[in-house]
Amino acid sequence: MEWLIACGKAFLIGGLFCVVGQLLIDYTKLTPARILVTYVVSGVVLSALGWYQPLVDWAGAGATVPLTGFGHLLAKGVREAVAEKGWLGVLTGGFTATAGGIAAAIFFGFLVALLFKPKDKS
């Protein structure tokens, strides 16, 4: 039962994040790239204000999978790195915390691009 509740929470919060994104696309004419940027920066800000961690605790993947979660990860990484390494942490924290995701996107992107071919839409 517990896992079902966890999934329900993830569905709800994740879905709501996407609804906000869709409203931005439909009503503001913001390009998708701008929306992604907005999400990541908002994630950093919300995390810095201490508001995002409670959401992650409650909704799990519903808060970490949207790109705001990526921003949260950046902020959290910096916060911890600064506590540990001081000034150096300011620069290393963000990339260190998100290295897995970025490297995965680059490597899988490279592989897929090598192996596949774009196709006409029909």
Partner: peptide, 18 residues
């Protein structure tokens, strides 16, 4: 050509844009 125009003026063909 749809595809040559897309890649020059808009997005890559496989990009998920509505």
């Amino acid at each position: 050509h749809f595809c040559s125009a897309e890649r020059q003026f808009r997005y890559p063909l496989e990009y998920a844009s509505q």
